[in-house]
Computed example of a mutant assay.
Amino acid sequence: MIRKGSREDDDDTSMPGPSGKGEGPSIGQQTSIIKNKQSRGELYAKLKHKQKKTKKAERKKRQKESEQAEKEGLEPPPKRIPKTIENTREKDETMVADDDDEVLADEEEDEFAAHFQNERPPNVLITTCYKPSKVMYTFLSEMLEVFPCAQYYKRAGFPLKKIVKFAANREYTDLVVFNEDRKEINAMLVVHLPDGPTARFRLSNLRLGKDIKGHGRATEHKPELILNNFNTRLGRRVGRMFASLFCQDPNFKGRRAVTFHNQRDFIFFRHHRYIFEEKENKSKMREGPKKVVQARLQELGPRFTLKLEAIQRGTFDSRQGEFEWVHKKDMDTSRRRFFL
């Protein structure tokens, strides 16, 4: 049975626009007032079919307008931008533009300034937890290819504070420590020397290069670094910390690229080799040159995901350290709230 006031008519003006643009209640909200399951399902299917039909018609109309504009040499109508969690994120007071004078002035005097002014080239020391497994050694061999200016030292039972002091005395610029639990690599610690800061990341979704289909082997060339979507003050600080691990003069001849892509505060690490090649333009819509230049990628590995847990002022100190930022569960109040 259908409650009084609801209508099954296709011409019902109280229903939301079938194009699904968000005007009025959704189809599910409109049909939820019907108690009879069969009637509710029938009405839902009818409205859903009508919505899909309208969307298809609108899509064809936009496609025809775009083709017509291209034939006449006019600019095609602007593409509609779908709503995503990223572009509807909550406004953050710490969001900064690339040309923000105040932020640029602060960064000229921060702990990474000497690196970006080419006064202190990167010299990275990599170590692990106390008893690394075979998986860790395989992972380290691939990470040493990612960082051409890095060296590995065995932990050998030394506490982390002594390793930090050892690295600083031997003029290493950064210390990277990988941790594992039950043969699963689960954390990464980055200490910028000699004065910090220190960042702790949770590491997950690791896939070694040998497990990636069609993977390649890295060369000894210095890679390019790509940092995406580090838009807040905290994000820029984390991005500068990653950049301090790589040389400022990449060898473009090697065609290697290392990417740290931030999306919803998850940092995706990827390592690729790219190549540009000419291919025939098989598109029927365009009457341009017969050959177009396209980029092709080959993943080298490894790949993994990082999640920032804390940033500490100075070098590593688990007891008396002062933290700049710590992630807590009560900070996750909304799916659209991000910090990087």
Results as ranks from 00 to 15, higher is better:
Met1Glu: 09
Gly5His: 09
Thr13Leu: 15
Thr13Phe: 09
Met15Asp: 15
Gly17Leu: 09
Gly22Arg: 06
Gly24Trp: 07
Pro25Tyr: 14
Ile34Lys: 02
Ser39Met: 10
Glu42Tyr: 11
Glu42Thr: 09
Leu43Gln: 09
Lys46Asn: 08
Lys48Pro: 00
His49Asn: 13
Gln63Ser: 10
Gln63Gly: 04
Glu70Met: 12
Ile85Met: 06
Thr88Met: 09
Arg89Val: 06
Lys91Ala: 03
Asp92Val: 11
Asp99Asn: 11
Ala105Asn: 03
Asp106Asn: 06
Glu108Leu: 12
Glu108Gly: 08
Asp110Gln: 10
Phe112Arg: 14
Gln117Glu: 15
Asn123Gln: 02
Asn123Cys: 01
Val124Met: 00
Met136Lys: 11
Tyr137Thr: 15
Phe139Pro: 06
Met143His: 04
Val146Thr: 03
Lys154Val: 02
Lys162Glu: 15
Glu171Lys: 14
Asp174Gly: 02
Phe178Cys: 00
Phe178Tyr: 04
Asp181Phe: 07
Asn186Val: 05
Ala187Gln: 06
Val190Glu: 02
Thr198Trp: 04
Arg200Met: 08
Arg200Phe: 13
Leu203Thr: 04
Asn205Phe: 05
Lys210Gln: 12
Gly216Phe: 05
Ala218Trp: 01
Lys222Gly: 00
Pro223Ser: 02
Leu225Ala: 03
Arg233Ile: 08
Arg233Met: 10
Arg233His: 08
Arg233Trp: 07
Met241Gln: 05
Phe246His: 05
Asn251Gly: 12
Asn251Pro: 11
Asn251Phe: 13
Lys253Gln: 14
Phe260Glu: 10
Gln263Lys: 12
Arg264Trp: 05
Arg264Val: 01
Lys282Cys: 13
Lys282Pro: 08
Met285Phe: 13
Arg286Leu: 15
Pro289Ile: 07
Lys291Tyr: 06
Glu299Gln: 07
Thr305Ile: 04
Leu306Phe: 04
Lys307Gln: 09
Lys307Asp: 07
Gln312Asn: 04
Arg313Ser: 13
Arg313Lys: 11
Gly321Glu: 05
Phe323Met: 14
Glu324Cys: 00
Lys329Pro: 12
Ser334Ala: 05
Arg335Asp: 12
Phe338Ile: 02
Phe339His: 13
Leu340Pro: 11
